[in-house]
């Protein structure tokens, strides 16, 4: 699978600078880049040096709304040209969103392409936050809150210019306690960390006892130690799509399936779109409990646990009925 990393962040937060630096590192040499600029005249592409063949600029609209279809077509086209040898065999795609983009529809588009069997998979979501203006931006711009909330990695930019960023760090931790926070000074950051996010999308799936509430976006964590039936997972995802839908900015989880005790299923979801579960070869650690992290509005950990319990009870009841009838 080819991971698709989404690089997002509010206007002026240093996405292009960061991407330009990252693409100069050997670790990211085989990277196809899709840049989205909002405006009639794009300049970001001139600031990023990447192979001409595997570089695509999408402009005159924002990825999350007017040209989402273009993004899906662009990704599919890149994969097709790669398989024909028309472009270098890139190992990943990085999408730099416009600063005004809501990342959720973009993640949706990636997952839709993945579901079509394109060979693409959602990698990491990397969000840049300006250390100087980030706090004010988060207070003023709802879109910047969403960009932070769905991130796997938060990168604090321009921290060389900011005297004190403790308040900003606290705000980021409240909005997204599971994201890894690092700093980039003049766009310099260790590319190995970014690659790590791509390869291990569930590495940070630790379940914390506390909930984070900020700007009405919550991050809830659900843990269940008993295995669940595969059918329970299907019905659970369907119910989440029904009842959480657009309020579910992002979901990721590792599931202990009763029928597959040695190979856990990994699930990803954005709004009402869910990846087909991926099966790991083995448990990544000694912790073999089901863990699901959900980010969004109006979510309830207790409701999810009650839902799983009711579905499991119904499946158990049906099994008893079938045994009695047989």
């Amino acid at each position: 699978m080819i991971p698709v990393t989404v690089l997002t962040g509010f206007l002026g937060s240093g996405k292009t600078t960061l991407l330009a630096r990252l693409l100069k590192s050997p670790e990211l040499a085989r990277t196809a880049v899709i840049i989205n600029e909002f405006g009639a005249v794009g300049i970001d592409h001139d600031l990023v040096e990447a192979g001409e063949e595997s570089f695509v600029q999408l402009e005159t609209g924002c990825l999350c709304c007017t040209i989402r279809g273009d993004l899906e077509a662009t990704m599919a086209d890149l994969v097709t040209r790669r398989s024909r040898g028309a472009v270098p065999a890139f190992e990943r795609i990085v999408i730099e969103t416009s600063g005004l983009a809501d990342p959720a529809p973009i993640l949706n588009a990636i997952m839709s392409e993945s579901a079509r069997g394109s060979g693409l998979a959602l990698g990491a979501v990397v969000t840049t936050v300006d250390a100087v203006t980030g706090l004010a931006t988060l207070s003023r711009e709802a879109q910047s809150v969403r960009q932070v909330a769905v991130a796997d990695r938060l990168i604090l930019t321009k921290s060389d210019l900011a005297e004190q960023s403790a308040d900003l760090r606290a705000r980021l931790a409240a909005l997204n306690p599971r994201a890894e926070l690092s700093e980039a000074i003049f766009g310099e950051i260790d590319p190995a960390g970014l690659l790590d996010s791509e390869r291990n999308p569930i590495r940070d799936l630790h379940v914390h006892a506390h909930h984070a509430h900020s700007d009405d976006i919550q991050c809830i964590a659900v843990r269940r130690d008993q295995p669940m039936h595969a059918l329970t997972l299907t019905l659970l995802l369907e119910a989440l799509a029904d009842h959480c839908g657009a309020n579910l900015l992002r979901l990721k989880g590792i599931i202990n399936i009763a029928e597959s005790p040695d190979r856990p299923a990994v699930i990803h979801g954005v709004q009402h779109v869910f990846h087909a579960p991926a099966w790991l070869d083995r448990w990544p650690s000694t912790d073999q409990g089901t863990r699901v992290v959900m980010i969004g509005r109006g979510l309830s950990e207790g409701w999810v646990l009650d839902l799983i319990a009711a579905i499991e009870a119904e499946i158990d009841e049906l099994a008893v009925q079938q045994t009695s009838a047989g």
């Binding site: 979510l299 409701w303 009650d306 119904e314 009841e317 008893v320």
Partner: peptide, 19 residues
């Protein structure tokens, strides 16, 4: 089993109304 199903459904409806 029936009691378990009923209890589970009651709990689910209660938390659903809240959510």
């Amino acid at each position: 089993r029936t009691k378990s199903m009923d209890e589970a459904l009651l709990a689910l409806i209660a938390s659903s109304l809240t959510m």
